[in-house]
Computed example of a mutant assay.
Amino acid sequence: MESNSSNPYKDCLVNEERRLIDERTNVGTVEKKKIAIHMAQSNSDNHTKELDLGTKTPKPIQPILSAYPCTGLGKDRRCFQPQWYKSFTWIEYSITRNAIFCFPCRNFPTQPQKGYLFVIGYQKFRKVKEFLTAHGETNGHATNVILWNHFKQSLIEGTIKEKFVALTKSEIMPPGNAHYCSPPLQNQMLSAAGNIILKYIASEIREAGYFDVMADDTRDVSSYEQFCICVRYVDKTNTPKEFFISFEKVVDLNAESLTKTLISTLNNNSINAICVAQAYDGASVMKGHLSGVQEKYRKNHKMAIYAHCYAHKLNLVLISACKYLPQSRKTNIGENRASWRNFCQNHHSSENNDHIRSYKIPIDTLNIYL
């Protein structure tokens, strides 16, 4: 039986370019046919040409040429611009195909390869910045970039097998065919390393004698409620330390269930020093003074006073401020961290209060939380 030999990626590209041609109302029918035939032939030749980008390398192939060949006809005639390398450091250029590829998505794909930047290359150099910006904001691209960074780190620090051999100092030589790359084995190694770290944290807490506990629940991508538990203490050098202990899957979100989960997690990790404080968010199930987690936990830890988590309070302040300042939603707080810190430290000053009143933000909203 004769199968359809058409390539879905090539067909998709040709259809898209035909659509763009139809939008050009100032081009005649004969001219449209010439352009469509030229684009179809160009893309067919482009797909059959050998790719000159190689395999996994520390960085993308980004050749600098004196001139780049152009594609398209008439007003759509464009060529590759080398300054795009600076704006999009993850792109690579194929000389043989005269096309742009995404280096992390081509070499470290987490999903089946589809689209221009994976297989045949992106050759429509008109409005290419908009296309690359949209691609760079996708979740798939972000995941592939993380894998790329891990690959570069392994080139510097060595693979898991190399690290394992170095740690054992050749006392336990693994078999020659052992690569330690299977997911179950890597999970076991990570679990073993995590247990060692938890034992070290527990020993430091016992040596310090006092600690405080922090907890909050969140829902993961699988819609399961995870109870996050952290501890904070001061070590023997008077250095405050804060560590994550574990995520605990919980079914019931009532105070009784959360308290049992909190106590059992601390006991299972041998964290049995004197607890002097507990910090949660402002939810009633956590802060309730009659039947909340903080009250139930204090039955066995009399010195564990409750404090509303300052990080959560700051988050409430920012949310409330954004309700009154629509333009603040477009502000990158990370780039203006110093300004936010200065504002929070001096929020009682008359100058800041006058600034707040100019935007009609209730002063009480900030005083409640800060």
Results as ranks from 00 to 15, higher is better:
Y224P: 01
I229P: 04
N272R: 04
N238Y: 09
C228L: 15
E256T: 11
I271L: 04
E248A: 05
R206I: 03
D220W: 07
L266D: 03
S257Q: 11
N254E: 07
N254K: 12
T261F: 08
T261Y: 04
A283F: 03
E207P: 07
V250M: 13
I201A: 02
Y280M: 04
V251N: 13
Y280A: 10
P240K: 04
D235F: 09
F243R: 12
K249S: 13
V276W: 00
N272L: 04
R232M: 02
F243E: 08
S257N: 14
S264D: 14
K241W: 02
K249E: 12
R219N: 10
F211A: 12
A202Y: 01
V251G: 13
L266I: 11
E256W: 06
T237Q: 15
S284G: 06
K249G: 05
T218H: 13
E225L: 14
F243W: 09
D217R: 07
E225V: 12
K249R: 14
E204D: 08
A273D: 01
I263L: 14
E207Y: 09
S270W: 07
A215D: 05
E204R: 11
R232Q: 12
E256D: 10
N254W: 01
V213C: 07
K260A: 14
F227Y: 14
A277K: 00
I205N: 06
Y200Q: 15
N238L: 13
K260N: 13
S246E: 15
E225I: 09
I263R: 11
D216E: 13
D281E: 09
P240G: 05
L253V: 12
S270K: 09
A283E: 07
I205A: 02
S246H: 06
Y200W: 15
Y210H: 05
A255G: 04
G209K: 09
V250K: 07
N238S: 09
D216C: 08
K241F: 06
K241C: 09
P240A: 10
Y200N: 15
C230A: 06
A202N: 00
Q226N: 03
I205S: 00
A273P: 00
K260S: 14
V231C: 02
A202E: 00
T265W: 11
R206D: 03
I263Q: 15
I205D: 01
G282R: 10
I229Q: 05
V213E: 01
V251D: 12
A202V: 02
A277F: 00
L262G: 04
M214H: 08
I201E: 07
Y233T: 00
K241N: 13
S264G: 02
T218W: 13
S264M: 14
Y280S: 10
E204T: 03
C228A: 15
D216H: 05
T265M: 08
L253M: 08
E256K: 11
A208F: 03
F211S: 12
F247K: 06
K260C: 14
F211W: 00
C228R: 06
S246K: 10
T259W: 08
D235W: 06
K241P: 03
V251R: 10
A202M: 01
V221L: 15
R219L: 09
V213R: 02
V221H: 15
T239N: 08
D235T: 11
V213Q: 05
V276S: 00
I274G: 03
L258G: 01
K249A: 11
R206S: 11
R206T: 04
T261C: 15
D235S: 05
C275H: 01
L266S: 06
C275Q: 02
